[in-house]
Write a protein that binds this DNA or RNA. Sequence first.
RNA 1: GGGCAAGUGGCGGAAUGGUAUACGCGGUAGUCUCAAAAACUACUGGUCGCAAGGCCGUGUGGGUUCGACUCCCACUUUGCCCACCA
Length: 879
Amino acid sequence: MKPSKFDHKTIEAKWRDRWEKEKIYQPDLENAKKPFYNLMMFPYPSAEGLHVGNVYAFTGADVYGRFKRMEGNDVFEPIGLDGFGIHSENYALKIGKHPMDQAKISEKNFYRQLHMIGNSFDWSKTLETYDPDYYKWTQWIFVKLFKAGLAEKRKAPVNWCSSCKTVLADEQVISGECERCGSKVETKELEQWFFKITDYAERLLQDLKKIDWSEKVVVAQRNWIGKSEGLVLNFDTDMGSPVEVFTTRPDTFHGVTFIAISPHHPLLNSVKSLSKDALEYVEKSKVIRSTSSGQENQKSKMEEKKVTGVFSGHYAIHPITKKKLPIWIADYVLMDYGTGIVMGVPAHDLRDFAFAKKYRLPIREVIQSSKFKVQSLEEAYEGAGKLINSGEWNGWEMPSELEKVFDWLEEKGFGKRKTNYHLRDWLISRQRYWGVPIPMVYCKKDGWQSVPESDLPVLLPYFKDFKPLGTGVAPLAQDEEFVKTKCPKCGGQADRETDVCDTFLDSSWYFLRYPSVGFDTFIFDEKITRKWLPVTSYIGGAEHSVLHLLYSRFITKVLFDLKFLDFYEPFPKFRAHGLLIKDGGKMSKSKGNVVNPDEYIEKFGADTLRCYLMFLGPFSEGGDFRDSGIEGMHRFLKRVWVLVDNQLDLKSDKEFDPVRSSLAKVPKGTRVSDTSETSNGIEAKELNREMNRAVKEITSDLENLRYNTAIAHIMEYVNEMSKFIRSTSSGQERQKSKLHHKYIKTLLLLLAPFAPFLAEELWEMLQVSKVPKVSKGKRLAPPDTSGTLGTLDTLDTSSVHLHPWPSFDDNELIEENFVIVVQVNGKLRGSITIDRKQLTSDKAVEEKAKVNPKISKYIEGKQIKRVIYVKGKILNFVI
RNA sequence: GGGCAAGUGGCGGAAUGGUAUACGCGGUAGUCUCAAAAACUACUGGUCGCAAGGCCGUGUGGGUUCGACUCCCACUUUGCCCACCA
């Protein structure tokens, strides 16, 4: 037989086709015995196509899914497109197409690419968020929230991006800039739809303890929710009403030297006697957020920051000392956190310090510090210490006795305990076109009414003037046909809401829909949902820590409370993967270093790309994409091909399982003198050990997503096999020895999650070579739920991907000889080899080490104080 | 300013208290070839030495331990996330 060529293109095309025909990745959703919902974050098909970063993420998730399938689970791995939203709309605008037309083009391209990467997707259950069959239920969720009192339209200062011409959720503003375009975000007073996610703040925080997520994501989410416990303190003023401040540091109460109010505070509207300067200042602040000034901000220290303020002309009274405290209006005070008013303690707060320094306000120290920086106006002291200048609190140790201060103030009636959260309500409306229409109707008589559920979906019309207006009104407002409707309550003339939903609402529930795709009488099929949800394993990027992952948890909890779901966490297990970078930097369109997977799949094949990406580094850390390495991976797969292919050519009479032949009792008199076979047998025992070791290591690596080391172990196993073949082959005619087929089968099984095409092709070739002219037509058995698809010793004709994962035997890992490292005073000095069969005692090991010439020269004539022996590992003489 | 992660060969990385640098890339030499490519084989942390072998070596300084890349303390650098959160 002529050696065949590793032709990745033909092989991959063949199996893509076959797998789909045989439906091997479509579990029977109704009858599956061991449902395993393997989910990855679906992509937004905005631009030129699939990003290699997507391939990285999807491959990592798929490797895990394939492994779990081989472990006997009914793995469901769906894929879809998060196609609504500003991403997609901006791209359509850029290339001059209508978003609805462009969506179809992108969809085709994305699905083509997603077919190429070798994932075991169930292609019968795809979904797109812009499909009316899908967004009907997005609207349904909106209606349910509205009816539950969790959605409301209210006027509030909101984040406005003048470039994207829409409002943004708090989570989409990064350091005062638009997450999408980087423009400076302004504050505008607008009437907007909000979801009251803050009602769920405590549960969202507490339930983090009940889920198994990557630690950094839990931390990020906890910080974002930002719980802080403090006191609300009252100060009497000469403004007609007292003011309330929120503080987590009541211990610095005696250090208060001024009060600062946010310029956005409504209280200022009712105060009559504000100075002209103050009034002007308040007006000016209404227009723009005069705060963060971009990158400049990051470098400058607090002191140099451009905080501004103005004296209001009014005073507050310190409740204990009765001193007059000037009330300032200052832009460093945020309206939407705490009470919008703070007590100024310049000695012990960086921001108060900067403000006091700028406007020459008094600084009063109340915590003793060893440094003199406060007095010398260098910086505030925020550290620990004893209280001073604090009346009866003098000498209290902070922060250990902070609770005493809380109690004291509460008992005396100066304040009340209060818990604050950083989390704000979810601003859901967008003044754009390409999104889910908010299913609400405004009637002059009846106010806001939700669209009756039977009238859903409210279809997004194919509207030509879809460009954002920038006036705070969505483009759909121009479409009279869309706007004019009847009030669901009174039947009178009414107007539809023309804003659309934030894209993150689309993605906050898609995992609930996948198993029920095609089910059109309800948001999901209850029976199927009970069986398949919550999601068994979720893998995705950490960049969604406070966006998608938080919103999904919120929506799930709401649906749980409304009794639609019987679980309240959507993703009990989530793992974040790292970021794939290119030549040391982030991949981005502006840098022009975005890698398109197509060319690599074309040149090397999906198997090579998959293995290469997974080998780069730990999956949770990400990796650096460099062209040089991918060649090496291709070389490795070719070596696997050649190794297996050569084996197929060999005559079976050369075949032997040396382990068996060495273990089996050889009848006396028959070829006992054949030393070569005996020595082969010994070596094969080592190969057998290597195989067991590889299975053991790779199994645990896969479970922990350590794909880089799993691949390294496969390589080591292949190296061992090559070495063995070389050492047992007869040289002259280059006749290779044939291995027992379990070695090859195990290799293919281990390789299958990483290189699914190659493994499948070689698997088939192996079967065909064993079973001449039989069972050609019926190769791929339908998924066998009995779980006994064959063992390593029997023939089986089904897909390698449906074959049980190989097991290992710890007994096979024991070596006959083991090496003990000998140290003197912890320094490596030599090693001794012990035969396990000799049942050496600890003392004997020690004696053997002592007489070893390499070691004896270090201990000769010295007194040995101590001997440390770690069984089978190390021996240390302390002299 | 806060939080998190990480500093190991020429490079990506492995080793989580016990032989540091597995596996791969790159490099050097060789086999094959008219030649090249591919493939295969050997070597590849630094340094001294003809060699045997020695010494040094996981960001820096200290500590714990018979023994530290690994644990503790301090410092430092880099990356990521957040940031006027009172």
